[in-house]
Write a protein that binds this DNA or RNA. Structure first.
Lengths: 248, 248
DNA sequence: CGCCCTCAGATTGTCAACAATGTGTTTTTG
DNA sequence: CAAAAACACATTGTTGACAATCTGAGGGCG
């Protein structure tokens, strides 16, 4: 069998898991949205058994919350949660950048810089690279460069997926993207010079700035809809219901 | 209904999840051990449906690994994984200790010190406090003092449970326990003086020492059974099988 | 004697039906 | 008319049965 062909022995539950996870991190399933078992089961053409397994697996990854007898919802992070997650990410990714500076080969740093060029081009041509879930990302590349499987798993999967739920729709403030690219260049520069301390510091500052920027935008939306209101909206979201008038 | 009585509306899958998780972190289910669905289902007196949901949830938490059509196993960490996890824990718990020093009330620090006294007493009387899964722990208390829900979730649940799989059976080297208690006192001392920097540094050093000690003990066992051998052993573990001779 | 093929047994994957629970609507009652 | 009780529907929780797959043993053949 050709290697490009997917193994047919992948479980239906696994397939549903991947599909739902992608839908969540891509924003197709919004934060706090209710997840109907029957609906998704029909959508994927599978029984409710495997679907429930996929949901439970996502619950273990904290991407969905399940309340007994009340159904599953996409997890909904408060602003405070996002702040805390960003701080964890700042600490860990600084360390990952430090390790990457020490451990990446010159050729790997070359590839990293090439990735930056690609992103610059994409930005200039206006393509949204964050549309697909598996887009090669600058931060992902750096973390992978740390060669620490646990750091990679934490930063590139668990924390990253959680934070992606709250990514802003538009590119945010104009000028921030350019500043971010400059900071990326600066980090790679420090890595080239094998200055691990400086690279770690720059990465920490970069993430701190990104957090500030995100929270400023978040603050705007929270003026429109407070957290309590969102909770309320989630609660009173109507279930599908047949409108047949009951017979007397 | 009395508050002490458990809510009966807890799902069977939830109950199985908690029971299996406890069995794993308590060592009742060893690392790398095969998990038979039928066996556990009969043990808990439930169907295989809820049990599989519990297993999937544990898979999401990386406590079990599931291979399609081959069953589930308790996760088995390599020595390298343990090293990487300890490093992550060192970084994060240092920060948590720093935050705790800034945020804990005096009364909470009092309670923390009282916990230390309790542990000292337990140690002198020879009781094994780590037998139960929910024992109030020094590190847990500090992390909770950081008042960061995400840090608490990461350190007290996810990473902590993963690392507990590899805790040593005996108390390890004599003298290490006493040294650890001294280091705990030192950390609390720094916290009392509200010296966050020093408390963070001491916590980092403390965890580094604990890691060194653990890996030294781990190195002894790895002389007896290498990682490759353990993998092999896991693979060739026989299934239960009826010994009926086949008819010719 | 060793290798490969075949085959039962066990285990996992999936589904459909049934029971239990929650929710919104309707009806009743003060 | 408002509040509360009753009810019907949808949704979730659970089980048992059936299909698919893997594992290990035994026998045939070089």
């Amino acid at each position: 069998m050709p290697a490009s062909e997917k193994t047919a022995s992948e479980t239906l539950a696994d397939r549903a898991y991947n599909a739902i996870a992608d839908a969540i991190v891509c924003g197709e399933l919004a934060a706090g949205a209710r997840i109907s078992e029957a609906l998704l089961a029909k959508r994927f053409q599978i029984g409710r058994g495997p679907l429930r397994e996929a949901l439970r697996r996502l619950e273990g990854r904290r991407l969905v919350m399940v309340k007994p007898n009340a159904g599953a919802r996409v997890v909904s992070l408060s602003t405070r949660d996002v702040i805390e997650l960003f701080e964890i990410r700042e600490i860990l990714e600084s360390r990952a950048c430090q390790l990457a500076t020490e451990r990446m080969l010159d050729s790997e740093i070359d590839a990293l810089e090439a990735l930056l060029d690609t992103h610059d081009n994409d930005h200039e041509s206006g393509r949204a690279t964050s549309r697909t879930a598996k887009a090669p990302d600058f931060h992902t590349a750096i973390v992978r460069g740390s060669k620490s499987n646990q750091l990679i798993s934490l930063l590139c999967s668990e924390l990253w997926d959680l934070l992606r739920i709250y990514r802003v729709k538009s590119s945010g403030e104009v000028g921030r993207t350019e500043a971010a690219f400059r900071e990326h260049r600066e980090i790679v520069q420090a890595m080239r010079e094998r200055d691990a301390e400086r690279a770690a510091f720059l990465m920490g500052r970069h993430i701190r700035k990104a957090r500030s920027n995100l929270l400023r935008l978040e603050g705007i939306t929270s003026l429109i809809m407070s957290e309590a209101e969102m909770e309320d909206q989630a609660k009173t979201e109507p279930r599908a219901r047949k409108k047949a008038p009951r017979p007397s």
